[in-house]
Nucleic acid binder design. Structure first.
Length: 435
DNA sequence: TTTTGAGTTGTTCGA
DNA sequence: GTCGAACAACTCAAA
């Protein structure tokens, strides 16, 4: 019988440095095998065969594989349903322990429970660690032990709990003798029915200090690079949240707050998994959404006739990214001006956003629809013209994405602002007044 | 248990 | 142009 090994299962922690579970796997003293599973259940749902996120994951895995190959090992990739893959793995290897970092999304928790039970039935330990957030689950709760649903007191408690050790990096670059000596190539996209997305230009996994330092003054202007563009890397764990929190703590509290919002929504999705599908405030599920298909289509394509909205949607469609200020404007427009269910907008963003993160996306959409925790009051309806005046006065952003802006070729507004505003206020008021 | 102050990102109206 | 109030009460968190 071969020596038992430990396995590190990469999921949304695609980096070697400062990786909590990987560090623990190395500390186990057993030879470590690094694996990644292309989850068929997830891939089968992707409509685009040249998916940008899958391309990003794939290129990141190739880099991880190069790093491991330089040490005489490799990243072992698998393709299939996770439980089937794990059955295959334990038949191939003598495994004594499996290490991974926790994922708080409902699907991931269900998956991990299944794997935990399967591995347990084989006498294999399955260890989960906190890596994706600074504080998780019930680490930041009210004095009565219940979870917060309001951000500001949550953030105060979060900050009061902060210790230097929260930022400490986990030593986790393995040496060759700590790895299982197997050399393999990773699965090709083609072998799974996909192909490379041609775009290939991803924001770097680092940002400039000056962007973080000036964040509070420039973050709302979509035509300039005032945000850190790290969301993609936080999504897939190609940067360490601890490293970023350390920078935020020392450089800019406003920017640190954004990381706390991320922890907050990760906590909310863990504590209230139903909020993925249902309004956090139940009364808001009584709203009679209009859901006009041709209006939804116009919004998706950036053809509403409201330049700031259309510019945002076109940026999203072209690049897989949208500036945060414009995410709020487009979300407000869909839910309030067009009275289209926030879930439809949430699903469209989920499909298009390179940095898509379920917890933050649902949180943001419910905030815009006024149905979420700590959401904007329902009578707060963004006025696209005023938002443009405030944040894109010279139309630099709009012109960047709408070449026909200002010409007769540009579409007429899909709905008149004052009429839409009155309509949504009446509709929400009536729905929320019911008993 | 009761009370009190507060609550990401806004808009409109009228003085 | 500028400013404060209204928008709608309600729920949350903490004392």
């Amino acid at each position: 019988m071969k020596n038992p090994i430990a396995i590190h299962w990469f999921r949304r922690d695609l980096r070697m440095e400062d990786n909590h579970a990987l560090s623990r796997a190395i500390q186990s003293g057993k030879p470590v095998l690094c694996i990644f599973i292309f989850d068929k259940l997830i891939l089968d749902k992707l409509e685009n065969k040249a998916d940008r996120r899958l391309t990003f994951i794939h290129s990141t895995l190739e880099e991880l594989n190069r790093q491991l190959q330089s040490k005489g090992s490799s990243l072992n990739t698998f393709y299939g349903e996770p439980l089937d893959v794990w059955k295959e793995i334990v038949s191939q290897f003598t495994v004594s322990e499996v290490f991974c970092n926790r994922d708080y999304e409902p699907y991931a928790r269900e998956r991990d429970k299944t794997i935990y039970e399967f591995l347990g039935s084989k006498g294999i330990a399955f260890h989960g660690y906190k890596d994706h957030v600074i504080f998780e689950k019930s680490e930041v709760v009210k004095d009565d032990g219940l979870p917060y649903t309001v951000f500001t007191p949550y953030s105060k408690k979060w900050k009061s709990k902060l210790h230097a050790q929260s930022f400490d990096a986990f030593p986790s670059i393995p040496s060759p003798e700590q790895l299982v000596p197997i050399q393999k190539e990773i699965h090709s996209l083609e072998s799974m029915g996909f192909r490379l997305d041609g775009f290939g230009d991803y924001p770097a996994a680092q940002t400039s200090l000056s962007i973080i330092q000036n964040y509070h003054t420039t973050r709302d202007i979509p035509s300039i690079r005032g945000t850190s563009r790290l969301s993609l890397h936080l999504r897939f764990g190609t940067v360490s949240i601890r490293a970023l929190a350390r920078i935020g703590f020392s450089e800019n509290e406003k920017w640190l707050n954004e990381l706390i919002w991320r922890d907050f929504y990760q906590m909310i999705i863990y504590q209230f998994p139903d909020s993925v599908h249902r309004a956090f405030k139940p009364a808001y599920d009584r709203i009679p959404w209009r859901n006009a298909p041709h209006e939804f289509e116009a919004w998706c394509e950036g053809k509403t006739g409201y330049p700031i909205v259309d510019a945002g949607m076109r940026e999203l469609n072209a690049t897989g990214f949208m500036h945060n200020r414009v995410r709020m404007i487009t979300a407000s427009f869909l839910t309030k001006h067009l009275l289209i269910d926030w879930r439809l907008g949430e699903r469209y963003f989920a499909k298009q956003l390179l940095d898509f993160d379920l917890a933050s996306n649902v949180g943001g959409w419910q905030w815009a629809a006024s149905s979420g925790c700590d959401a904007a009051p329902y009578f707060r309806v963004f006025n696209p013209a005023l938002q443009t005046e405030k944040f894109d006065k010279d139309h630099r952003y709009i012109k960047q994405w709408i070449p026909e802006f200002g010409t007769t070729a540009y579409v007429k507004p899909i709905v008149e602002h004052t009429i839409a505003r009155d309509r949504v206020l009446k509709t929400f008021k009536a729905a929320l007044q019911q008993d």
